[in-house]
Design a protein around this nucleic acid. Sequence first.
DNA 1: TTGAAAGCGCTAACAC
DNA 2: GTGTTAGCGCTTTCAA
Lengths: 339, 339
Amino acid sequence: MSRPTLADVAARAGVAISTASRALHRPGRIRAETAARVRAAADELGYVPSAAARQLHRSSAGAVALVVPDLTNPFFMALVRGSTRLLRAHDVVQVVADVEEEPESEEQTLAALAGRVDGMLLAASRLDAATLSTWSRRVPLVAVNHDAGDPEVPTVTIGTQGVEEAVEHLAGLGHRHLAYASGPATSWADARRRTAVVETCARLGVRLTDLGHHPPRRDAGAAAADAVLRSGATAVLTFNDLQAFGVLDRLASRGVQVPEDVSVIGHDDIFGADLTSPALTTVTVPAEELGARAAARLLGAVGLATAAPSAPPAATGPASTGPDRLATHLTVRGSTAPV
Amino acid sequence: MSRPTLADVAARAGVAISTASRALHRPGRIRAETAARVRAAADELGYVPSAAARQLHRSSAGAVALVVPDLTNPFFMALVRGSTRLLRAHDVVQVVADVEEEPESEEQTLAALAGRVDGMLLAASRLDAATLSTWSRRVPLVAVNHDAGDPEVPTVTIGTQGVEEAVEHLAGLGHRHLAYASGPATSWADARRRTAVVETCARLGVRLTDLGHHPPRRDAGAAAADAVLRSGATAVLTFNDLQAFGVLDRLASRGVQVPEDVSVIGHDDIFGADLTSPALTTVTVPAEELGARAAARLLGAVGLATAAPSAPPAATGPASTGPDRLATHLTVRGSTAPV
DNA sequence: TTGAAAGCGCTAACAC
DNA sequence: GTGTTAGCGCTTTCAA
């Protein structure tokens, strides 16, 4: 048998359907005894209100979706945590979906989720700008760390201060030849980051080898490490920490000393960055705040922000206004050394 | 203005609402030109079908929820990945919710999500057995690594082979006094794991100090480490790797050598376990398979399993039958040594 | 205080 | 091929 409906509950309690509805949500307007009877019936039946039916009537789903490219990347875990906190404080349900770095999978997910939620948070979308714009016209969304260049698409990004500091740090240490391992070709952040590296190197008169695109995963670090060695660079910056871990793995197994022979700098400062040996020098990104900020913007956009927060406004940052570009900074640990 | 409905699309295309519906979902039964006109209208309007309305009509939502206690714990990331893969192969939408280790938050989430999905996967629930049973009567659910003892609640768990091996390994190394750091008091897995440690120690004639409950987080490892040192044990087993990392941190900062002075064994073999120095000896859990297995059982229970997989049946393990207890095993790395 | 009835957006008979 | 219509489960006027 299918799940019990409000009609079943009403019948069992011997009241009208509307009375049952009120008894469950508006305890005041009903005789206490009736309300109790209804509640008992609902309980015995294991009644769960259908969110679909409720959503159909109201115009809002009371839920938003967060779409991330790879949930197994600790960076996104942190981001999720930030949005979760803010959303929970506003009594908005958050659903998270992992699209495993596949643009097609990302679009499928958008299609599947768009009709169930009031809005979506798209983290590090691998979609191109045009597709992103299109979806933005279909469903309220906030792009996180991906600027489609369309002013109609609300966006919150991170700055490139951190990577500039990284290059400066290396140059200050005497490095004259750096290498940059790119992330996915579909990553907006990677393009931006690479440009920052290129420009900073140019400004500082440091030679730069572009190592080409590598998947943003630990296992892709091996290829990047080999490329670094071939290039003759004395230091490498990777698109993200996962790649940096992989580089460290490979360098170690090839007997290359870090940081003595080659310096390594990652990006994101994810869980584990301080666990490696040597500990990883990396660009710290306020991932949690990024998630919270994006969530706040979305709530503002879909008009859910006014929902009285059930908890104090959360310490997760200002409301839906303010800068939409968060600063990053270099965190120096053990993986860099003078050349 | 609110989002466009099918009626808007039909009006714009100059057709009946049902024609519009068919044109969008059943391309065959409609004149090509009409279908194209409808599709164009939908496109211009940025039409997105309301999942709620569709779900109301059909009896199924085509979605399931996965509830985890802490998404920032790499163990759960792996589990999520496993269920995601299997579910995607069956064209079932998966939504993930993080309840941040709070039982109340967990119940709120259940209540919020139960009406939107066809079933739920409850990973390492912190709810007590009775509450779990109650919810199980309300919505199809599969408990992962939490056995409520209610045969009505489908369950998939992991065995304790790994922790037994861990104790045996330590005993074999000559350790005569071990310590166990428990996880959350509300964790079913912890109770089970602790019992296994107690019994194996008894069997082997090894002394055991119970360090009491500690949150399953890295920062909780400091207290556990201090307790180990006070106990005089030569080796410690922790509830999970996060705690083990924290123990390693603390031991290092107190100048205690691992594994020379104290051996450390974690549990889960999460991301980063091989990154620490020394690399962590830990109990490997097939987290991905656990997620896939649970998802398969849920699909079977809610009758979604028959949905023709859009991808080959996935290499993520057998269908909805088979053992519902997965084996674990010890993975020896550098953090243990003879006493 | 309670009941009857009108939709919310969509799909699926069932007509034409 | 295409239009009409009856609900799906729920909330909410409007009456009683």
